[in-house]
Write a protein that binds this DNA or RNA. Structure first.
Lengths: 349, 349
DNA sequence: TTGTATGCGTTATCAC
DNA sequence: GTGATAACGCATACAA
């Protein structure tokens, strides 16, 4: 008696060959509509395949080809609108190329990122798209990919290496725009809530912040920069920190490296009676769904997730198709406009 | 000259066999630490494998075994906190079992769900976990799984079929609790914003709503029930609808089948000067991150995503291990408490 | 345009 | 406890 686990025998190209009095080779070629073939034969093959419920066996094929038609994706976390759109962009391109994707999350942990990389390597993905975890320093876990010439392209958070291309936005410019906007609204003591400087994204945002201050002759103040993981609790902690400062030291604006922490920070400050944007103006980053939901609506920088995913995947396929220049062009930079909303509007009275 | 695509030759068990003067069969057995073996030999094999950079070839293995050690997951959408936690639960269980998961999204579209099912079937997943799209009616696309005895377990939105088990919460009871709570706060005209009744979840929530009204002798009013897709725009539309009603018909509370639409509905009403919860109280569903972020904080029903994912995956593995009772126990129901927050607190003055 | 023959890397079966 | 061998299903080099 067959148990639930016993797979019924699959239909193979041999079965089709037998039924059609053709050779397995012809079937194989016919099924992938390869050029050199009699149209009529192809039609017969396809019809029979349909009729007998044939399905292509990827393993046998991959074993033979040493190609999996699969690309691996490592994201730091999959729970933001930004990342969901990045993945959507990747999926669309991959689907068009006949590829599948395997998504894994590092949950911002170096160790998990390492495990995921190993898993994907062992699954023989044809390429890798990665956005690094917060605390990843060395790239030893990616060496196997480099060694085997499996293309790796990073996005959002680029690899500190010239071995691979990356798709990013101009974080420096975006941050500079955001801070300049706040200054134009009349803000003088602008706080920055940023991320781990190991990640280029956050280093660049900090650099843009500092440069804008300098451009407007505003002194950089150590106590107005907080680096953290940018999660809910960090937003709340930042608010508490602000509340703990005496009024002369308190910021009159906050530029935050993501919307989530900006939202929680704002929320906490409002609870304690601080008026936004009158007392403290806010600019976030990412254009998360929640930026339009909170009150006042959050001014933020659009982070074009879909375009980033699309560009990264497209670059990867270009490399897979033999266009090595895609790896030489080290950086692809996409636009990320500032979206001005109520949280930062403070026209001088 | 090897191109980027040329994979260097992989180390195989034959290579190990040659180096160690053993047979490939011995290597194969040694690598999976199977019982009947000389410990010393196993140690030598493992050491050599490490040294030569051997990695197991899943294709060859799957081709031979007809097992992929992979389970497929179809979710309707991956962008909610709820779904992110469901997937986290599934991943954890799968990892412990040595399985990988492939996640696909139907984006609430029947057609895409169908494509995904086919893809996963062709990828020969050993099992399937699925949460149906809004508009899925027939289950023809799942027949191949049933035919081949590939176990399918649904979660959140159960299959309208007794061919497979499902993991859900008691949506009827949860909705009943929510509405009863609103009634206890003194609300008399409670509106319900619900989802497509094809999905059991939403039908049950509506049923709980109606029953609670009946239990408290409140007449059911057709014009106070709106069924939609529960997205951002639907929330806004519902708010506009409410605003269009004359004051005698206007609801004094809204019970919404998810937090997102509740949040957008609230936001729009507030914009138009409606006081929440004083004029209209709100209860949402899911305990999304945003429920704690908006103002007032949204009373909601906790939807235990992690536990659901964990239970669904565990059930699937039980079936894979031969415990068929897991499929017989048709429904596993998890707890989903009501979390009372400011948006529904309206103690009588 | 089609057929023949072989190998991809692993594992199960059967010997020894 | 270990070895020899066949088979999993497909795709390609080569022959026809």
């Amino acid at each position: 008696m067959p148990s639930l686990l016993t797979m019924h025998k699959d239909v193979t190209i041999y079965d089709l060959a037998r039924e059609l009095n053709l050779s397995p080779a012809t079937i194989s070629r016919g099924l992938k509509k390869s050029n050199a073939h009699n149209n009529d034969t192809v039609a017969r093959i396809l019809r029979k395949a349909e009729e007998m419920g044939y399905r292509h066996n990827n393993f046998a094929s991959s074993l033979r080809n040493r190609r999996t038609q699969t690309i691996g994706v490592i994201v730091h976390r999959m729970n933001s609108y930004f990342m969901a759109t990045v993945v959507a962009g990747i999926e669309d391109v991959a689907r068009k190329e006949g590829y599948h994707i395997i998504i894994t999350q590092s949950l911002e942990k170096k160790e998990l990122e390492k495990t995921n990389a190993q898993t994907l390597f062992d699954k023989r993905v044809d390429g890798l798209l990665i956005s690094l975890a917060f605390d990843t320093t060395d790239l030893a876990h990616l060496e196997p990919f480099f060694d085997k010439h499996i293309p790796v392209i990073s996005f959002d958070r680029p690899l500190p290496s010239d071995k691979s291309a990356c798709v990013v936005i101009d974080n420096y410019q975006a941050a500079h725009n955001a801070v300049t906007h706040l200054i134009e609204q009349g803000c003088k003591r602008i706080m920055h809530i940023g991320g781990n400087l190991l990640r280029d994204v956050y280093a660049e945002r900090l650099r843009g912040y500092r440069q804008s201050l300098e451009d407007h002759n505003i002194a950089y103040a150590e106590h107005l920069v907080r680096l953290c993981e940018l999660n809910e609790q960090d937003g709340i902690d930042a608010a508490n920190y602000i509340l703990s400062l005496n009024v002369r030291e308190r910021p009159d604006a906050v530029f935050c490296a993501n919307d989530v922490s900006a939202a929680y920070c704002m929320s906490r400050l409002k609870e304690r009676g601080i008026k936004i944007p009158e007392e403290i103006a806010f600019v976030g980053f990412n254009n998360d769904a929640l930026s339009r939901l909170i009150e006042p609506k959050l001014t933020t920088i659009d982070n074009p997730g879909y375009a980033i995913g699309e560009a990264a995947a497209t670059g990867l396929f270009n490399v897979l198709k033999g266009d090595e220049t895609a790896l030489k062009t080290n950086k692809l930079v996409l636009k990320s406009p500032l979206l001005i909303r109520a949280s930062s509007k403070r026209l001088k009275k």
